[in-house]
């Protein structure tokens, strides 16, 4: 199930080996290893503050790992964080079109349809409800054309119907050969492996050197 036509790097798997991540110089997780082949999803679980966001930011390339490697992530990741990066003064269509052109794409219609935003295209993003904003933020993933979705709590402020829309979008993405790495607490009804990060908590003794911020 591999569609090369839409530019997905099929066969490439995201491979994380012995990764140690930290926040502000203090190690949070250590020894994290997993691999995520195309067409599969991996759900990260763990209590608040257990390092899920830090791990996702590291995989997305926003942070440098303290140890270990992330393979197969270059130019393949579409990252979605707690904040959707929407501009309140721009309309729904303008927001999506901007991200599409940043990622070298042009067609925003499938993303609008998948997240039921067609009636809102001319609405300013600042006038959307929290759930509608979230849907727009997730629709952004579909206009990136990237094949690894890295999602941090994607279902926050979504209602049940919207969660179903999101689950359908992820399922479609996986069927096209893409993959998804997400931190979420609710069951999306997607066939996915689960990784509990609380088992990888870094020992406090492994304090990093203080010049970490300058490396």
């Amino acid at each position: 199930m591999c569609l090369r036509a839409i530019g997905y790097g099929c066969g490439m798997e995201l491979k994380v080996t012995d990764l140690a991540v930290g926040r502000g110089g203090a190690p949070v997780l250590a020894g994290v290893s997993f691999s995520l082949p195309g067409g599969q999803a991996l759900v990260l679980r763990g209590p608040n503050g257990s390092g899920k966001t830090t791990l996702l930011r590291t995989v997305a390339g926003l942070q440098v790992p303290m140890a270990g490697q992330v393979h197969g992530a270059e130019d393949r990741i579409a990252y979605a964080a707690h904040a959707d990066g929407l501009k309140a003064a721009l309309t729904v269509a303008e927001n999506l079109r901007f991200w599409a052109s940043v990622f070298g794409q042009s067609d925003i219609a499938p993303a609008l349809a998948a997240f039921d935003l067609e009636d809102l295209v001319e609405r300013r993003a600042g006038q959307l409800s929290a759930g509608q904003k979230r849907r727009l933020g997730l629709a952004r993933l579909m206009v990136t054309g990237r094949d690894v979705w890295v999602l941090d709590e994607p279902t926050v402020s979504l209602d049940a119907a919207s969660v179903a829309l999101f689950a359908d979008a992820v399922r479609g993405h996986l069927a096209r050969g893409g993959s998804a790495l997400m931190a979420t607490h609710i069951d999306l009804g997607i066939e996915a492996e689960t990784l509990d990060v609380s088992g990888f908590r870094a020992a406090a003794a492994q304090m990093a050197s203080t010049d970490e911020a300058f490396l």
Binding site: L62, K87, W99, V102
Partner: peptide, 15 residues
């Protein structure tokens, strides 16, 4: 851009 998260998303974009 930093406050609304757009800077993080731009940093992970091809730019």
């Amino acid at each position: 851009d930093w406050e609304d998260g757009a800077l993080d998303l731009l940093a992970t974009s091809p730019l």
